[in-house]
Design a protein around this nucleic acid. Sequence first.
DNA 1: TGAGTTTATCTTCTATAGTGTGTAAATGCT
DNA 2: AGCATTTACACACTATAGAAGATAAACTCA
Lengths: 105, 105
Amino acid sequence: MDMRRLVGRNVRRIRLEKGLTQEAFAERSGFSQQYLSDLERGRRNPTVVTLFELATALGVSHVALVEPDGEDARVTPLRRGGQRKESADKALARNAGGASKATMS
Amino acid sequence: MDMRRLVGRNVRRIRLEKGLTQEAFAERSGFSQQYLSDLERGRRNPTVVTLFELATALGVSHVALVEPDGEDARVTPLRRGGQRKESADKALARNAGGASKATMS
DNA sequence: TGAGTTTATCTTCTATAGTGTGTAAATGCT
DNA sequence: AGCATTTACACACTATAGAAGATAAACTCA
């Protein structure tokens, strides 16, 4: 279980679902775009406080950022009615459907 | 939402439920007893990797360590002025009910 | 083809996570 | 009383989280 990559995937997925660019997310979260890039690629090991601030900026619970996502959800061999998410990260990159072109111009 | 304290409470509660001392938990987790003491008292800001290692050593999911526990869990719109729950932690130290004396030496 | 937008990568820097050692404060046991 | 166990607290130290800046790579669309 690679926590860095798990958090990275969750952050990227949720960010894209919200239709935010890394830059727009950076502005509203206070983290730099560079840091978010590293984070989403699993190169960073955020603290629980950082986790909470990221989740708050994304409008989700901090728990959502550490929840297994199917890519490497090992510890639970049996799942009963859980969520099945097998879509690729890239697939989400298309467009979240909502706001594109995050503010600013 | 004080993530440091939330994680601290969860770790302490689960550790005591398992009937482990900080020292016994330190041995099986690889963290020092001093660090665990700080952690449980909300003085530390662990990374997600640390969170996972702690959870693994406790035999629970890493999600359990960040799950709201009622103390400051829900986004209680009601007044959140009082966190005078100081002695409550000690109350747990009495005995977790199950295994006592963590299979030492 | 080139400009604009978005993300990845590099370097330098400060703050702090986590280690190691020691010890004090409690609590418990006989 | 004493001794053992458990937890709290201090200090110095190394590794890294996260900030700040600039820029390269990549994709989008005129």
